[in-house]
Design a protein around this nucleic acid. Sequence first.
DNA 1: TCGTAATCGAGACGGTACGTCGTGTCTTTCT
DNA 2: AGAAAGACACGACGTACCGTCTCGATTACGA
Lengths: 201, 201, 201, 201
Amino acid sequence: MPTAQQASTGRRRNPATRAAILATTFDVVAELGYARLTIEKVAARAGVGKQTIYRWWPTKGALVLDAVLERSLGPGEPVDLPDTGDLEEDLTAVLVATVEEFADPAFDRALRGLTAAIIEDPELGQAYRERLDEPMRELKRRRLRRAQEVGQLDVDVDLDLAVDLIFAPVTRRWTERSGDLTPEGVRAIVRHALRGLAGSA
Amino acid sequence: MPTAQQASTGRRRNPATRAAILATTFDVVAELGYARLTIEKVAARAGVGKQTIYRWWPTKGALVLDAVLERSLGPGEPVDLPDTGDLEEDLTAVLVATVEEFADPAFDRALRGLTAAIIEDPELGQAYRERLDEPMRELKRRRLRRAQEVGQLDVDVDLDLAVDLIFAPVTRRWTERSGDLTPEGVRAIVRHALRGLAGSA
Amino acid sequence: MPTAQQASTGRRRNPATRAAILATTFDVVAELGYARLTIEKVAARAGVGKQTIYRWWPTKGALVLDAVLERSLGPGEPVDLPDTGDLEEDLTAVLVATVEEFADPAFDRALRGLTAAIIEDPELGQAYRERLDEPMRELKRRRLRRAQEVGQLDVDVDLDLAVDLIFAPVTRRWTERSGDLTPEGVRAIVRHALRGLAGSA
Amino acid sequence: MPTAQQASTGRRRNPATRAAILATTFDVVAELGYARLTIEKVAARAGVGKQTIYRWWPTKGALVLDAVLERSLGPGEPVDLPDTGDLEEDLTAVLVATVEEFADPAFDRALRGLTAAIIEDPELGQAYRERLDEPMRELKRRRLRRAQEVGQLDVDVDLDLAVDLIFAPVTRRWTERSGDLTPEGVRAIVRHALRGLAGSA
DNA sequence: TCGTAATCGAGACGGTACGTCGTGTCTTTCT
DNA sequence: AGAAAGACACGACGTACCGTCTCGATTACGA
């Protein structure tokens, strides 16, 4: 894990090696999926010793999580969700963008791999929530809070409930590969979800 | 898959062997999870030759799907969802029952295993949808259709959308191990989802 | 080990595979020596899975012992030592033949490898003694016994002592790569050893 | 090898470190044998960096040779073999003392390790001969030369042959762990060897 | 009394091999 | 023909060491 602080003496960790491993991991999971991802393959393709991977990542899952994080977050800081004043439009835009990412086979497979790993590994799940899900969720909560302030959303509703209600149906259709994921389908979900969460005004 | 039709001559497939394999598979996935489930382990524990498993199931995933199906559906025929007239109450009851099943570690792990397999394997996903998800979904649609007939649900709303809006948030909280899965939490989801789907009357 | 008797059911051990492994093992020790002999290399060159080697031989040493045995003893039965009536001449001939075998680099390295393994592994040492050393030693004792019968050797002398006195100096010169291993050098050893063991007649 | 001459400037080699490494090496080879001796283990146990070992010794074998030399020769200078006038008695005493050293498991294993290394490594063999074997052999030759002078040994016999004839059988019984290594067994070897080498007087 | 040069502990790194486990196939024998 | 037993080629596991390579700290000498 990248937070391990360096001991006072000895050779230091090579950041280029770390980057090469994560980039290769992403490529391999995008190409073969999580089940056929192999530490050995990653090491070989990255031109790295296996031990170097095992030294820094405890499991395949942790490796994939870091790889996806590195690729998703990149160097920049997280931007806010759009706020044009039209809540339904803004959320639909976000979800349509998400669906478009899923349409990229590489990203699709990488994310499926990560998800498969998370379902079976509680510790990895926690890391995922803290480092990927929670930051994104905070952005969503923020947008919805603003909607509450302008009376577009019921001020009594729990924001996490609201987020789940709006976003979970799309996620489900993706993981189970069933249901309508077109822009219209996504907009219908947002519309009905928001209707249930609407402010009384 | 068990639908292979029997050739005219020679020894017939032994149903007791099939049952033993599926029961053992369920136990193993419940104990070790999908990742550490092994055909060899199943064969050994079931007192069965490996070939016997390979003869009838093409992949680990197909085996687990059958094992879960066998356990879930059991011998009886699927019953309808409750219909007391109070839609929110009925759906909350169904979801609370689901959450209670998740609380059984064996079932939880078995289902997580199956889900992990499905995410990465499109073919298995299709089999899952046809044999497990669609029958359940049909029951849900049926209940919602009755709600439409009595004016509790917008007649214009797509029933699959409605099902996703109501059920997906709970599923998401389970797979990602985050969010409120208490009866109250579940009821809140149902309430707000139904508000968005309510009939205009 | 080749004495394991076959269980009643299941696939049988493939004798061709066994032979390929032993032949390859001999080649590899002869080429690289014992220290750089690798189970993996043997498996790869023999076109065999590693497990197949581990299934039948517990250690590198056991493998090399079998390889040397297979090559040395071959199919035929052990022949007697020469008996022309001239004891010194006969023994010198035997030792000169041995030294000539050592002159073959392949045999030399294979035997050095086996010897290195034996020195550090008591169990392997016992196997070596029972299966290679003792049969050879019996032939030597037999020749010396005949010498006792015709009065060329002290009848009171222990035959194992006699064998050691005659053969050990040559072996030592070989293992330590020091001392005269020419036919004349070998003959000198035999002459002086026999003088110490001579019959009183 | 420790003969590298010191460059004019910079920090000098630490003799305490050298001693610690050799002492640890001896302990490790005595405990685990040569095959399981590891530079890493020695470094760790001696509290020394790996590089410090690699800087001064080219191979495991060289390290073990130095370790055995350090322990065997110690600080003092080599003493002569006993000379009571009774050659058989003196040589038997020497060999019995040797056998007693072999009885110490630590020494036994260390020496076996060294021997195993030597058998396969010609260069190491040469170093061994020059630094350990030859000095000992010179002492033996010296004693035998005195025996020639007093007519107890054939003056025409080559002294190296004589040494081999007397000492090799005992060494062989040790390396192959077979044959009589009791004082009586050893004395019998000496007696018969000397009979073959006896002076004509 | 500094700077230069080597030693030394520590430990990352690219590799090779270990010995084990599992895969999916094949062979043998029994039912 | 179905099934248990188990050999087999193969691929990956996670670990141990190899020998090399920084690092930073520590001596020692010579200018």
